[in-house]
């Protein structure tokens, strides 16, 4: 086996990566090669895009399951909002793959649209759940407060807010060090 099939080339690199990535195994997208549609026949390209959409879909489904579980585990408004805000981290990861520079621009656009559409739907679903709460007789003031938390921590903010470079990357074990600022 040599050439294209010897090491599987970019196709194999991508598919291997997508399988690991979808399964939440360690996988680094930084080293992925660029893909060009004209390199492949149409069936191969379709299979590749199916791998891509499937991996993105799997990650989004897993992400949604984690979010629902985390939200259900909260006992106060702050924790509920915090889970929403923290869930954006997972969305940034999915959107980053959909916009990977190694993908052709037209494909990037379609994948980004697909992902963003799903995120919008999850946000809408959370809003609908609140409407259901009112119909079930939950105190409207509590529902209103939750709606506010939901909108304050809107998942679709991932479309506009750039992910902070690991904002919590402080060393929790570091001793307190300080130098005062003289007047």
């Amino acid at each position: 086996m040599t050439g294209l099939w010897g090491d599987g080339g970019p196709y194999q690199a991508w598919v291997g990566f997508l399988r690991r990535w979808a399964a939440l195994e360690p996988a680094d997208p930084a080293g992925l090669p660029a893909l060009r549609e004209e390199q492949y026949d149409s069936d191969t390209w379709v299979r590749l895009t199916e791998h891509l959409t499937s991996a993105l879909n799997t990650r989004l489904v897993t992400w949604a399951e984690h979010l629902v579980r985390a939200l259900n585990g909260t006992r106060d408004e702050f924790s509920w909002g915090r889970e929403l805000a923290q869930a954006r981290t997972g969305l940034h990861t999915v959107r980053a793959l959909a916009a990977h520079p190694g993908l052709p621009e037209s494909l990037r656009g379609r994948l980004a649209e697909l992902v963003d559409d799903q995120i919008t739907q999850v946000q809408a679903q959370l809003e609908r759940n609140l409407e259901d709460e009112i119909r079930r007789g939950t105190d409207p003031r509590l529902v209103e407060r939750r709606r506010r938390t939901l909108r304050d921590n809107d998942l679709t903010a991932t479309f506009t807010v750039r992910p902070a470079p690991d904002a919590w990357a402080y060393d929790p074990a570091a001793p307190p060090r300080r130098r005062i600022v003289p007047e």
Partner: peptide, 22 residues
């Protein structure tokens, strides 16, 4: 709660899911 799961030695984040259940 705030940092999620990280490697204790390198402080590198391990997963996107930062919930306790995760």
């Amino acid at each position: 709660r705030a940092t999620g799961l990280r490697d204790l030695r390198t402080n590198a984040p391990v997963q996107d899911d930062r919930s306790l259940a995760g």
